[in-house]
Amino acid sequence: MTEISDWRYRIERYRLIGVRCRRCGSVYYPKRSKCIKCGSSDLEEVELPKRGRVVEYTIVRLLPDRYNRFHPYAVALIELDDGTRIYGQLTDVDLDKIHEGMEVEATLRKLYEYGESGQIVYGIKFRPVLSR
């Protein structure tokens, strides 16, 4: 991925823009061009809820390039308030305090940088809710 593909994906990554099937209502994130439940190609863009809860999670400890500057991080299977399930990276959380059912909300964070002189890429991560 380059700065250009990062640019192309920015809206999806900044605002959780997915698609909803106009026929059966299924929601997908990131976008799909065809509904895998009912086969319809009639999908509309939709902004997903910014809150949800952790269903399952793991802690990535073999850090891949682009995410290797800091300590391990958590990736969670999150069920958003509308029932859509997505993967999200958690932030502002103590790794030993994450639990299934933990309420989280979307926030914009730095994802990675193209080196010291390159671009900074931003996107949504999830953190424990500031308040209910």
Binding site: R69, T107, L108, R109, I120
Partner: peptide, 16 residues
Amino acid sequence: PSFDEDTITIAYEAAR
């Protein structure tokens, strides 16, 4: 700030 925060992300939080 955390390692993944900067002025832009803080401005985002406040504006949101």
